[in-house]
C-alpha cells in the first residue's frame, strides 16, 4: 500500500499539490481522475521520486520512501510520453532495462500479445507513436513488480491493444498487485477501477468506489457525477477511506 501524508508541491508560484492525504490500498485497481493540470502526474512523480515534494511524506508498505531509490525495485511505471534513445533497437532497449533492473522478466509474452516481433530489430526513431506506446507498456509490465503505476496507459493505443491491456491489468490484480492509473477515458474507469481518487486543484475531492461517487453526488451516472464535482468545486466529498 501507499500512504501519502500532507503532500505539498509548488512550481514557482503555481501551487500544484496542496496538502494531499491519500491511502492507496493493496490488491486493488485505483484510478486517479482529475482535469488537466490538477496534479495527478505530479503526485505520481512524487511517489517515484522524480519530483521532490516541498512538504509531506510518502510511505510504501509503511516504509518512508522520500529521498530513497531502492524502493523503485518494487514499482513498475509507465510514463505519459514514450520516448527512448533513438538509435537503440527495441531489443536493445529491453535488454538495457533488464540489465539495469537485474530481475526476471517476461517481455516475450507482451511482444507476442502486441505483435512486436517484427519491430524488435528496428531502431526506435523509426516507430509509430502507437508502437512506441506498446514498447512503453511492455517495459512497464515485464517485471511483474508488486506496484504498477500507469500514467495515461491507453494514449495512442488501438482498440485491440486496449482490450489486451485491460485483460493484463485484471489478471495482475487477481495476482494481488496494486495498480494505479490515471486516465481521461471514463469507460476505462468504469470497467477497471475499484477505487476512484478524484483530484482537483491539488486537493483530493473524492476517494471511494464508483457507486459511492454516484450516490454521494446525487447524480444518475458516473460521468454526471464527475461533471458535478467539476461544476461545483465547493462540493467536497470527504474521502471514504480515511
Amino acid at each position: 500500500m501507499i500512504d501519502i501524508r500532507n503532500l505539498h508541491k509548488s512550481f514557482g508560484k503555481l501551487e500544484v499539490l496542496r496538502g494531499i492525504d491519500l491511502h492507496i490500498p493493496e490488491s486493488k485497481i485505483t484510478a486517479i481522475l482529475g482535469p488537466n493540470g490538477s496534479g495527478k502526474t505530479t503526485m505520481i512523480k512524487c511517489v517515484l521520486g522524480m519530483v521532490h515534494p516541498d512538504e509531506g511524506e510518502i510511505f510504501l508498505d509503511n516504509e518512508r520512501i522520500t529521498g530513497g531509490w531502492q524502493y523503485r525495485e518494487n514499482i513498475d511505471y509507465l510514463p505519459q510520453i514514450a520516448q527512448f534513445p533513438e538509435n537503440l533497437k527495441i531489443r536493445e532497449l529491453f535488454s538495457m532495462i533488464k540489465d539495469i533492473r537485474q530481475r526476471p522478466s517476461n517481455e516475450d509474452d507482451f511482444i507476442e500479445l502486441f505483435g512486436l516481433e517484427g519491430f524488435l530489430n528496428k531502431k526506435i526513431k523509426n516507430l509509430s507513436g502507437g508502437t512506441k506506446q506498446k514498447v512503453n507498456i511492455t517495459l512497464s509490465l515485464m517485471f511483474d513488480s508488486p506496484v504498477i503505476i500507469m500514467d495515461e496507459p491507453t494514449a495512442g493505443l488501438d482498440p485491440v491493444a486496449i482490450i489486451s491491456l485491460k485483460e493484463i491489468l485484471r489478471k495482475r490484480k487477481t495476482e494481488g498487485k496494486m495498480i494505479l492509473f490515471t486516465t481521461h477515458i471514463m469507460s476505462l474507469v468504469e470497467e477497471l477501477a475499484e477505487e476512484i481518487v478524484f483530484i482537483l486543484e491539488g486537493n483530493i475531492y473524492f476517494q471511494g468506489t464508483l457507486n459511492d461517487l454516484i450516490v454521494k453526488s446525487g447524480e444518475s451516472d458516473f460521468e454526471h457525477a464527475i461533471a458535478e464535482i467539476l461544476r461545483n468545486k465547493s462540493l467536497v466529498i470527504k474521502p471514504s477511506a480515511s
Binding site: M50, W69, R72, Y77
Partner: peptide, 17 residues
C-alpha cells in the same frame, strides 16, 4: 535535450540519480 525522456525513464528505475 534529446535524452530528456530517456532520463525520465531511467529516473523511474531503481538507480541513483
Amino acid at each position: 535535450y534529446n535524452s530528456k525522456e530517456f532520463i525520465e525513464l531511467l529516473l523511474a528505475q531503481p538507480i541513483r540519480r
